[in-house]
Nucleic acid binder design. Structure first.
Lengths: 335, 335
DNA sequence: TTGTAAGCGTTATCAG
DNA sequence: CTGATAACGCTTACAA
C-alpha cells in the first residue's frame, strides 16, 4: 500500500480514481501520492475494487453459434472481435460466452455465473427466446441485443436495416440488365430475415419486376444446403442471371457455381450480404454491408451510458443502422 | 450468507468447495448446509473468492495480430476460440488480448493489468521477443507459448512439426506426376517458418527432386503480396504444375490463379497449410493440417498442471504435435 | 482538509 | 470435529 510511503490511504483512493466523495485532498498531498504511486509501481487491485464497488469493469458478449467454424459463422465471431477492441477503449473487459448447445439448466448456470461475476452489462446476439433475455434484464443488468433481437421489455436493441443495401443491390443489377434475380436466404422465421426478403421484393417492385416463386429459396445457411438450393435455383426453366445470397450461404452458393463451371460474373452475377467473406473471395463479391463496427461500438457505449445514469429507469434505446452496398467485381465484368 | 440459515460460515466454505483444510464437517451439518444453499439459491461470490484465494480462475490468451480480418489471420483467431471452449471445461475463464500495435509502454500496462487481475496462466501466441515472454515468466505465472515461441527460460512451448504433413503432401503431388512444385511461404525469419521450408526441401529430396530457387517465394502473407508472388512463380520459364501455399497466403494465391483463369486442379494443383479456409474454398483444398484443437487443449491443461504442482520449480514442457495431410479436391481431378 | 473505521464475501488458521 | 477471528486490498461515509 502506497500510503506507507506518504499519507493515509483514503487519500490514495481519492486521488487515484476521481472519486465522487466529498473528500478533498490538497494539491500538495496529491502530488506526494502520485509520486509515491509512480515510484512503487503501485496500482489498485482490480479484484478488490470489484468486490468493494460491486462492479467488475466487465461486459459479457453472449451469442449462440452452432458452428465452430469462423467461416460459417463469421458475423458473430467478427462482432465479438469488434466488441473486444471497442471495449478496451471504454475500459471494459469482455467475457465471450457461446450459449449454443446449452440446456436451459446450463443456461441458468451461465447466467448465474455472469451475475456473480458482476458483469456490468450483457451484449446478447442471436438469443433463442425473449424469456431468456428478460431474465437478464430483470436482474437489473443493462442488456443490449444486437442483430437479431427477441422481444423483451427493458432491453436495448441494435439492428440493421436491410432496405438501403438491397435497394442499391437490385438497382445495380438492373442497371447491368439483369431481370431474373434470385434470392438465396435464411429460412429462420425471425423478423429480421423476413424483412430482408421483403426489402428484396420491394426493391424489385421499384423496377416493375415481380418476385417469382421459383427464384426464391430459403434454408438453413449451411454449406451443403446452400449448395443444393443454388443448384435448384439454377435448374429453373428460366434460370436467374443474378443471385443475391445471404451471409454464410455464400460459400455453398459459390460451390454450386463451381460445380456447374459457371463463372462469376461472366455467367452469373452475384451479390452477397455481409462483407467479411466477400472481399476475400474470387472474384471479390459486391455485397450488402452490415456496419458491424458501428454495431459493436454502439453496443458498448450504450452499456456505458446505461451504467452512467443507472438511477432513473432509463428507457431502452432501439437503434437501427442502415446497410449499404459495396461494389466489387462480381457483377460487372471482372478485368 | 447461507450461514444465517444454519450453522456457521467456515463450514459452508468447506462444504461448498472441497477445501483442502483440515476442517471436517459432520454429514448432518453438511446436508443442512447443502439444503440451505439450494433453497437460498446461494453460491459463492467469485470476486470475493479471487480476492481471498489470490487466484481468479482466469487465463489470458495474448496474441499479436496486425489484421482484424478473420480470414487473414484465421489461425490465432481460431486458436482463441478453441482455447475458450477448452477452458470452460477446465473451469477457467479466458481473457483475450491482442497485443498488436501496442507500444512497449502499453505492453507493460497490459501485463500489469493481467497480473493484477490475478490470471492463473498466460497462453502466448506469436510473441515478438523472448524478453516479453521472460517478463511474464519471471512473475511466477505459468506461461505456455504456442505455435511460434520465442526462447525464454521457464516457459512451456507447444509447436507443430511440419515434417510429416509436408512429406505426405509432396508424396501426394509426386504420385500424380508433379515435379515442378513451387512453395509460397512466409518470410518471417522465425525458426518455425524456416523449418517448414526445410521440410519441403527434404520431402522433395526423397524423390530426388532438387529445390529450384525460382520455385520458392517468401513474403509477408498479405493478400496482395501473395497474389503478386504467385504471379511471379507462374511467370517462371518452366512454371510449376503444383503449388504449396502457406496459411493465409492461400487467398492471395488463389486470386492470382483466378486472374490468370487457371483452374484448380485441372491447370495447377494446390495444397495449402492449415485447414480452416481450405475446406470452404472452391475447390476444397487438400491441405497440411495443424492440429489446433490439440494445441489448445494441451495449452490449457498444461496451465492446469502447472498450477497443481506449483510448489516445485516444475520443469517446463516442450510439446510437438505432428501435422498431417488431409486430402480434398485440389490435386486430383475434381469431379 | 485529513484520517479512521466499517464493510465487500470468502477462506485459513487456530483455539474450543 | 466445530466455530470464531483475522486477513485479502480496496472504497467511502463520517468524524476529527
Amino acid at each position: 500500500m502506497a500510503k506507507i510511503a506518504g499519507v493515509s490511504r483514503a487519500a490514495v483512493s481519492v486521488v487515484l480514481n476521481g472519486a465522487k466523495t466529498n473528500t478533498r485532498v490538497s494539491e500538495q498531498t496529491k502530488q506526494r501520492i502520485l509520486a509515491a504511486a509512480a515510484e512503487l509501481g503501485y496500482s489498485p487491485n482490480p479484484v478488490a475494487q470489484s468486490l468493494r464497488r460491486r462492479r467488475s469493469g466487465t461486459i459479457a458478449y453472449v451469442y449462440r453459434s452452432l458452428s465452430d467454424s469462423l467461416l460459417e459463422r463469421s458475423v458473430p465471431y467478427q462482432l465479438g472481435r469488434l466488441i473486444m477492441s471497442t471495449a478496451v477503449g471504454h475500459g471494459y473487459q469482455v467475457i465471450e460466452v457461446n450459449s449454443a448447445e446449452q440446456t436451459s439448466t446450463e443456461d441458468d448456470e451461465t447466467l448465474r455465473l455472469l451475475l456473480s461475476r458482476r458483469v456490468n452489462g450483457v451484449i446478447l446476439g442471436w438469443p433463442k427466446t425473449g424469456l431468456e433475455v428478460q431474465r437478464i434484464v430483470d436482474q437489473g443488468i443493462p442488456v443490449v441485443q444486437v442483430m437479431k433481437p427477441q422481444p423483451a421489455d427493458g432491453s436495448s436493441t441494435i439492428t440493421v436495416d436491410s432496405s438501403p443495401g438491397f435497394k442499391a443491390a437490385v438497382d445495380h443489377l438492373v442497371s447491368f440488365g439483369h431481370e431474373r434475380i434470385a434470392y438465396l436466404g435464411n429460412s429462420d422465421p425471425h423478423p429480421v430475415e423476413r424483412a430482408r426478403l421483403r426489402c428484396f421484393e420491394e426493391a424489385l417492385a421499384t423496377h416493375g419486376i415481380r418476385l417469382r416463386e421459383n427464384l426464391v429459396k430459403l434454408g438453413d445457411v449451411s454449406l451443403e444446403e446452400s449448395r443444393q438450393l443454388t443448384h435448384d435455383l439454377l435448374a429453373a426453366s428460366e434460370p436467374p442471371s443474378a443471385l443475391i445470397m445471404v451471409d454464410s450461404s455464400v460459400l455453398g452458393g459459390l460451390r454450386a457455381l463451381y460445380d456447374l463451371r459457371l463463372h462469376v460474373p461472366d455467367d452469373v452475377a452475384v451479390i452477397s450480404t455481409d462483407d467479411l467473406l466477400a472481399s476475400h473471395l474470387y472474384p471479390p463479391l459486391t455485397s450488402v454491408v452490415q456496419p458491424l463496427e458501428q454495431v459493436a461500438e454502439r453496443a458498448v457505449s450504450l452499456i456505458g451510458e446505461r451504467e452512467a445514469n443507472s438511477d432513473g429507469a432509463e428507457s431502452p434505446s432501439h437503434i437501427v443502422f442502415p446497410t449499404l452496398m459495396r461494389t466489387r467485381s462480381s457483377v460487372e465484368k471482372f478485368s
